[in-house]
Simulated scan of single mutants.
Amino acid sequence: MSLFGYTRAGQEPGAPRPPSPLLWIALIALIAGLLVLAFAWLAGWIGRDRVTAQAFTDSIEATGPPHPGFRRAHTKGVCVSGSFQGTPEGVALSSARVFAQRQVPVLGRLSIGGGDPHGPDANARVRSMALQLVSDDGQEWRTAMNSFPFFAVPTAEAFLEQTRAGIPDPATGKPDPAKMAAVLEKYPSARAFQQWAKTAPWSNSWANTAYNGVNSFRFTAADGRSRDVRWSMRPQAEFVEMTADQRAQAGLDYLADEFQQRLAQGPVRWDMWVTIAEEGDPVDDPSQVWPMQRRQVKVGTLSLAAMQPQADGACRDLNYDPLILPSGIAGSGDPILAARSAVYSQSFNRREREIANGTGAAATGKEGAK
C-alpha cells in the first residue's frame, strides 16, 4: 500500500518500490561526467599546474620557435648503427640477454641539446647518445644518455618549473632572468649544474664524449639478486678539449662532419660501465651524484660503424623511451625517469601527426626531420 492507498500494477503490497527513472538518469549522468573529468584531467585540459606530459611538452615548445616534424628537445642529430658486446661481469649482474649474446645490433642517435634543428653543433653545451638494442630473444633495451654528470633538479615538478622559467617573455623575446634566478635559488642542484656548464671542458667530438644515464635502474641477475645501478658510456677515443675560439670557427655541422671522418677510419667505441649503489645512496634523485668509491663494473662495449642523416635514417621514427627495458633491467622510482618516458611519448605522437598531415619537415622533404 502506498501513501495514497494503492500499489502499482503488478506490485505486491509491502514490496519495495523500484527506483525512479529519474534516479537512474541522474546516476548515468554522474558517471558520464566523472569519465569526462577523468579524461580531461589525464589529457591536461584541467588542472593547469599538474605535472602532465602535455604540460611538459607545451612548455618545451614554448621555449623557442616551432619546428613541426622534429623532436621537441635534442632536436638536431644523426642516426648511427653498430653493435654491442656484453661481458661476463654484465651477465653476473643482469639476466638481460644483451649481456650474454655475442653481438647485439644497435640503432642509435647522436644529438646536441636545444630545440633548433639547424643550430651550430659546436655551440651546444649538452651532447647526447640514444640507443636501441634488440637481442635475439626479441627483447628491447632503449636508453638515452647525456654528457652532463647529474640532472639539474630533483623532481618532475622542479623540472617543469625550470622549463617554464626558460620560456621567453613576449615583451622582450627573452626568458625573464628573475624566474631563472628563482629556480637557482630554490634548487642547489640547479646551481651546481650551472657551475658544471660554465667550467667543465668541452670535448671536440661526439666520439670522445662520455654519456651518462643519470637516472637509476635495477639490475636483476639470474640468481634473483637485484642491485640499483647507474650506467655510462666511456669513450675509448682520447679526450681532446675544444677551445672557445675553435667553437667560434667551427662549421654548422661540425660534430657530424668530424664523426663521419672518424668512421671512415673504422668503428668508434665506448665501454659501458655501471656504478652499483650502496645502502643510503639517493637512488630516486638524479640530481645527486653517488660517492666516487662505489663499485664500478664494465658490462660491455659499444661499437658504432655507420652514420645516416636523421631525415631519412632509421632512427627518425624511433622513440628512445628510457623505460623500454628487457627482462633483467627495471626502472627505479626516480620521478624524472617516469617524466622523461611520458614526455618522449607525447613528443613522438605530436611529430608523427605533423609528418602524417603534411606539416612536418619530413613530409616536406627538409633535411634533418626529427
Rank of each mutant, 00 (worst) to 15 (best):
A244M: 11
R353L: 10
I329Q: 11
D317N: 14
V104T: 14
P21G: 08
L42I: 09
A248S: 15
A311T: 08
P88A: 03
V240R: 12
T220M: 06
G328P: 13
L30E: 06
G5E: 06
A305H: 06
Q101M: 07
E367M: 08
Q85C: 11
L22H: 04
G115N: 13
A244K: 15
W196P: 03
G368D: 11
R71N: 15
G266Y: 15
W206G: 04
L42V: 12
P105C: 03
A73V: 09
G64F: 03
G113H: 15
A250Q: 08
Q103L: 13
E278R: 15
A363E: 12
R71S: 12
T199N: 12
I276N: 13
Q246P: 04
G82H: 08
G90M: 01
G213Q: 10
G368V: 07
R109I: 01
V183T: 03
E241T: 14
P105Y: 01
A338F: 02
M307A: 12
L323Y: 05
V51M: 03
G368K: 14
S327L: 13
A339F: 08
S203R: 08
G280S: 09
L110N: 04
W24E: 00
R142H: 13
V240K: 11
I46Y: 02
L302V: 11
T359H: 07
E61P: 02
P188V: 07
Q54F: 06
N123T: 11
T155F: 15
F217C: 11
A158R: 11
L3M: 04
P68M: 10
V299Q: 06
P21V: 00
S345D: 15
I28M: 03
A122C: 02
Q101A: 14
R72I: 02
D58H: 10
A207M: 07
S287N: 04
D58S: 08
V214C: 02
G64D: 08
K366P: 00
V91N: 05
T52Q: 10
A342I: 02
Y254F: 10
G251L: 04
Y6P: 05
L325M: 09
V106Y: 07
A178W: 00
G251H: 02
G358R: 04
V51T: 12
F348E: 14
F217E: 14
I167A: 08
M307Q: 12
H74Q: 15
W273H: 12
N212G: 08
S128I: 03
E185A: 15
R125G: 05
Q308E: 15
L110F: 14
F239C: 10
I60Q: 00
K298I: 01
I112Q: 09
R17D: 12
A96D: 05
S59E: 07
R191E: 02
A190D: 04
K179R: 09
A256E: 10
T364H: 07
